[in-house]
Design a protein around this nucleic acid. Structure first.
Lengths: 163, 163
DNA sequence: ATCGATGCAAAGCGTTTGCAGGGGT
DNA sequence: ACCCCTGCAAACGCTTTGCATCGAT
């Protein structure tokens, strides 16, 4: 349990509202993603979900993730280095990320998401952009840097102030 | 001229300091990128630079962009939708971006870059992260949304307050 | 019976790499 | 002479797509 997440009923409802079926594969992919304590790639989700859903295919995982992104249950974090795969986040709440430029791994920040950050940074910017044809729907803030080697995939990252 | 950029001597120096040669192809790629009023893909740079450097190959454009990124003269903006190519920015100054989730195009924001934004958002965060093995080297802030159709590649985006 | 979803394989796209040839120091 | 770079083509990794089958209404 790293972040609040949707229960099955809410997820079913979200999918059905969008005209998508709440299939076992989609629910399994979501559950698996929500249960993982990092932000995995599609391949990692595939491997992790196979015990629960042994006949699932990688293509179905991609399609399930796409459906979950479409209904807003999952956030896709594009690769920064072109040589790497995208990562997925079963966001329950919005939050910021730290991205390791060496490994491509993404870590949650403890900092609380501030919906008014843009307004504080530049008052009137969103209105200004809207008048000029840019509809702003959100923002993404990432710290970039390097995580020390040997600390990836630690056993107990939960100490300290990580969210 | 959209942003301050390095002149040839500075760029030569930056490349040579890094042990890289200031070849005509690399200089041409940089010049072309700096002259473009948007943030093009490698393919767009390739097509645009061909008149100046007719025998250049797409692979060389990729390699040149990689070298320019390595010396800090160019910023690579990873694709958000996995189905799209990365984009490149001949950054002279740091700045923020708006990313269109429909077309993948990236636009500069007029807002001035604030190096203390992270410290203001969460005082002590960077120090805290450093103590826990995360070395923060910078941050990236992007507004996400949709640009109205028919306004891409406009003839005169320079009016208004765009940077 | 209909219509979307799955699973497999194959294709697709952006990017990188291997390597022979070339050019500057 | 050395070493890096270029340009071509082939390979690569990640993601999507075509299509026959499946499953739920």
């Amino acid at each position: 349990m790293t972040h609040p997440r949707l229960d099955h009923d809410a997820l079913r409802g979200a999918l059905e509202t969008a005209g998508l079926r709440p299939t076992p594969q989609r629910l399994a992919v979501y559950d698996q993603l929500a249960a993982m304590d990092h932000h995995p790639t599609a391949e990692e989700v595939f491997r992790a979900v196979r015990p629960r859903s042994p006949r699932i295919s990688l293509a179905t995982v991609y399609k399930a993730l796409e459906a979950l992104v479409a209904v807003g249950a999952v956030d896709r974090l594009g690769a920064e280095s072109a040589a790497g795969p995208a990562r997925y986040d079963a966001r329950g709440d919005r939050h910021y990320h730290f991205r390791c430029l060496r490994t491509g791994t993404i870590h949650d920040l403890p900092t609380q998401y501030d919906p008014r950050l843009i307004e504080q940074l530049d008052p009137g910017l969103a209105d200004d952009l809207r008048d000029r044809g840019f509809q702003v729907t959100g923002y993404r803030l990432e710290l970039l840097g390097y995580r020390l080697p040997g600390r990836d995939e630690p056993g107990s990252p939960g100490s300290g102030r990580d969210a």
